[in-house]
Design a protein around this nucleic acid. Structure first.
Length: 429
DNA sequence: ACGTATGATTGAGG
DNA sequence: CCTCAATCATACGT
């Protein structure tokens, strides 16, 4: 019941929004229309007065309209009708006051720009109305003066006319203020309700986040610092996108969604996992290659014939080719990955269909790099090394086995618990 | 136009 | 506060 009502309200607001957006707020046509109306009306009053008729009562004093006060207050609060500081500083202040100070500044700059636009329109229109009011007043005064030659016109009558005109114009002003208020409210709802303007993160940002996720698949709970760093990295790398700074809470949201969705069906994400594992593997491979070359200088017995992997080779589209590539890479089909067996490791490789396994023995002298490479092999994630990541945030739901997900996975996860020392690959240094 | 992907929100539970 | 789970609302690809 409550929910449906909520939805109805939402719909109503949406409809209102649509209406207002589709209706030009301060169209010249509207202004002109009002002016024409007023002219006609004044002429009518004039005429009726000339005939000695009275088409309206003479209530002179307006009590201060509470609604107008409200509108004024709101406009003042929003920084629309405030003192005119250059560049809409009041609007900026309003924007800063309404949200986090410097959190998503780019969004707010957009908001500010729109607000200043509204503000400008408001002020120009207000000025125009003022001017029109004055013009009308003088015009009517002239008319009355002319009429005073033919008939006596009391000062009270003039005063009354002026009062009428001013009232009329103030009602128009109220219209303007109302429209402005509506526009501001809509602007707020559009810009401050993040849900309404959901934007996908940039490719690079998701890449970074995915990279972190898949390289910390065993415990994808970034600490606060890690989140901050990720957020920073994402917003830095997003140089070309139309400003989407990613906040820490967005990173949290992202990881929350990712965990849930990854867990929901791992199969769907295997390809992605492979991809990102490959990516980290490539970077690690470069490091390994460098290490190999270094070691080659020391020990010339190490062959280095075929390990000239380029990044572009991983830009293949089909998962199969990626997988074969990886397989080749690790089975050493090019006859290259023969490092001195300083640290023995048995890595099992699960191909994408999950049936055929290839076991290859890889020895590496760089433990951390091997740990990175491990993710290529265990794309379904080593949930088993829960004791990794000593600094990572430990969630409440982390069970004693160390896995962040319950044992509901259907896939045959190959656990490779290589030891207590699980160095998390940290590509960011 | 429709289905999927995805960021954000909500509410429960700790 | 956090996370998870469900859900919403929009983006985006077809």
């Amino acid at each position: 019941m409550i929910l449906s009502q909520k939805r109805r309200e939402k719909k109503a607001v949406e409809n209102l929004w649509r209406f207002v957006v589709l209706t030009p707020l301060w169209s010249p046509g509207r202004c002109f229309g009002w002016c024409v109306l007023i002219t006609l009306w004044i002429k009518m009053v004039e005429y009726s007065d000339g005939l000695g008729l009275s088409i309206r009562g003479a209530q002179e004093e307006d009590p201060p309209d509470p609604q107008l006060m409200r509108l004024d207050n709101m406009l003042l609060a929003e920084g629309v009708s405030g003192p005119e500081k250059g560049g809409g500083a009041a609007a900026a202040a309003a924007a800063a006051a309404s949200g986090g100070a410097s959190d998503n500044s780019i969004e707010h700059s957009d908001y500010r720009a729109k607000l200043t636009q509204i503000r400008q329109i408001y002020h120009t229109e207000l000025e125009k109305y003022e001017q029109a009011c004055n013009e009308f007043t003088t015009h009517v005064m002239n008319l009355l003066r002319e009429q005073s030659r033919t008939r006596p016109i009391s000062p009270k009558e003039i005063e009354r006319m002026v009062g009428i005109i001013h009232r009329k114009f103030s009602s128009i002003q109220m219209q303007l203020k109302q429209s402005t208020c509506e526009a501001v409210m809509i602007l707020r709802s559009r810009f401050l309700d993040a849900r309404r303007k959901r934007r996908n993160f940039s490719k690079q940002a998701t890449e970074i986040l995915n990279e972190y996720f898949y390289s910390h698949l065993s415990n994808p709970y970034p600490s606060e610092e890690a989140k901050e760093e990720l957020a920073k990295k994402c917003s830095i790398t997003v140089s070309q996108g139309v400003g989407s700074t990613i906040t820490v809470s967005q990173v949290s949201n992202w990881f929350g969604n990712k965990r849930i969705r990854y867990k929901k069906n791992i199969g769907k994400f295997q390809e992605e996992a492979n991809l990102y594992a490959a990516k980290t593997a490539v970077t690690a491979a470069h490091a390994v290659a460098a290490a190999v070359q270094n070691s080659q200088a020391n020990s010339p017995t190490t062959p280095n014939s075929g390990f000239q992997m380029k990044d572009e080779e991983f830009q293949l589209d089909s998962a199969e080719s990626k997988n074969t590539l990886l397989t080749n890479m690790f089975t050493g089909s090019s006859g290259s990955f023969n490092l001195p067996n300083s640290g023995d490791m048995f890595l099992s490789m699960q191909s994408l269909n999950g049936d055929s396994y290839q076991v290859t023995q890889v020895g590496a002298n760089v433990q951390s790099q091997v740990d990175t490479l491990r993710h290529v092999i265990s794309q379904t994630a080593g949930y088993s090394d829960g004791l990794g990541g000593s600094t990572t945030y430990s969630p409440h739901s982390l069970n004693t086995n160390g896995g962040w997900q319950n044992a509901t996975t259907t896939s045959s996860v190959i656990s490779l618990n290589e030891g207590p020392r699980s160095v998390h690959s940290d590509t960011s240094n």
